[in-house]
């Protein structure tokens, strides 16, 4: 039995947020879903150069990400342009 992956709390939070974002994208109109997915990937990947030890930045970005998710979770938002 393989040992479970050890992840820091922050890393776990990022993964949960990523999942939550994709779940939110599922509630969008079918034809626009791809745009949301592209947007989410872009938002996460553009900070991939942040150092793993840079907790302050990571925490800040997590807060930003959560706020952004809250914004586009609103059902009135139907599409996103990337």
């Amino acid at each position: 039995m393989p040992a479970p992956v050890r992840r820091s709390g922050l890393q776990q939070e990022i993964i949960s947020l990523y999942r939550a974002c994709f779940r939110a994208a599922r509630l969008k109109p079918q034809e626009n879903r791809v745009n949301f997915q592209k947007f989410i990937r872009m938002q996460f990947r553009k900070h991939s150069d942040v150092k793993a030890r840079d907790f302050a930045t990571i925490e800040y970005l997590l807060r930003m990400g959560k706020r952004q998710l809250e914004t586009y979770s609103n059902p009135s938002i139907q599409n996103v342009h990337v």
């Binding site: 479970p4 992956v5 992840r7 890393q11 776990q12 993964i15 949960s16 990523y18 999942r19 994709f22 779940r23 599922r26 990937r41 996460f44 990947r45």
Partner: peptide
Amino acid sequence: DSLDAVEVVMAIEEEFSIEIPDKDADE
């Protein structure tokens, strides 16, 4: 990477019409 893995699991959810809780998805 770990983010791609999340997408794979989400795709599996959609394919089989199930919802996989985070705890199981990580495994």
